[in-house]
Amino acid sequence: MAGATPTANETPGIPEVTNEVVQRGLWFEEFEPGTRYLHRPGRTVTEADNVLFTTLTMNTQALHLDAAWSAGQPFGERLVNSMFTLATIVGASVTQLTQGTIVANLGFSEVAFPAPLHHGDTLYSETIVVDKRESSSRPGQGIVTLHHIGRNQDGVVVAKATRNVMMWLREAGERQAGAGA
């Protein structure tokens, strides 16, 4: 139950709850440029993932959907939709970096897909903190620049992107969280 207060435990043999930890991302102050976060576990991408994402997003590119046509193309098979790859490497970072501490995603730059991702590949994600600065127009918030990298199981870079996010400073974020309770 969200927002529940710890109470006496009603199950025999289980101690009374005396401490509660809520999973969250990092506050602005906790980001340090030059730190690399390795997001685990990896995500093995299936054919079903690719077909579902591709059709949900109305991307009718035959390179993602048509096995016979793709067999005659340079890679000889269908490729995983690059937008799925990008969404997955960013999504893998959420619990470790931005869960409940982000104000907004501001944008992406330098997005690249240097190698394809194939059905059955396992995608591993990492993030490097590039820069941070307090916002001059939004008190209690700051802008963090993150560089996301996706590698397959062989360590080959299949995606990378730089992203700017607006993050809460701890005091303002905790105050905001308390206002929503």
Rank of each mutant, 00 (worst) to 15 (best):
L52E: 12
N81Q: 08
L56V: 15
D121R: 04
H64M: 05
A48T: 15
A48H: 14
H118N: 03
T88Q: 07
V130M: 13
N81A: 07
T122S: 08
D66T: 01
L79G: 04
G100C: 05
M58P: 07
L117I: 01
I128L: 15
T101L: 03
F53H: 11
F84G: 06
V94G: 09
V51F: 12
A112I: 00
H64P: 13
G72E: 15
K132C: 06
D66F: 03
A67W: 06
P116Y: 04
L52H: 12
L63H: 00
A48I: 12
G72F: 03
T85E: 00
G91L: 08
A87D: 06
N105S: 14
F75H: 07
P116F: 07
I89Y: 04
T85F: 01
D121H: 09
T101G: 10
D66C: 05
N59P: 14
F53Y: 15
S109E: 11
E110K: 13
D49L: 11
T88G: 00
H119E: 10
R78P: 08
H64F: 11
Y124K: 01
Q73E: 15
T95H: 12
T101K: 11
V94H: 07
G107N: 09
I102P: 01
D131F: 09
D66H: 02
L97A: 00
L86A: 12
A112G: 05
I89H: 04
F84D: 01
T98I: 13
A71Y: 04
T54Y: 03
Y124W: 14
T85G: 06
H119M: 04
S82T: 12
G120S: 07
V130G: 07
I89R: 02
T127L: 09
L123C: 02
L52T: 15
D66V: 05
R78Y: 01
I89N: 02
T95E: 13
L123V: 00
I102H: 02
T95L: 12
T127Y: 11
M58N: 13
M83T: 11
F75G: 00
A71N: 04
V130F: 03
K132V: 09
A67H: 13
L56C: 14
F113C: 03
L86I: 02
Y124V: 00
Q96C: 01
T127K: 07
Q96K: 10
L106M: 14
T101F: 09
E77C: 08
D49P: 15
T85D: 04
G76T: 06
N59T: 13
D66P: 03
V90Y: 03
S70D: 11
V51P: 12
G72T: 09
S109N: 08
S70Y: 04
R133L: 03
T60E: 07
Q99G: 01
P114W: 00
D49W: 09
T98A: 06
D66Q: 02
D121N: 12
I128K: 12
T60I: 09
R133S: 12
V80G: 08
N50E: 01
L117M: 13
H64D: 06
Y124M: 03
L106Y: 06
K132M: 02
N105C: 05
A115P: 02
Q73H: 06
V111A: 08
R78M: 08
N59L: 12
G107I: 01
L97I: 07
S70R: 00
D131I: 09
D121F: 03
L56G: 12
V111C: 10
T98G: 08
V129R: 13
A115E: 01
H118V: 00
D131R: 10
G76S: 10
I102W: 01
Q61V: 04
T127I: 11
L52F: 15
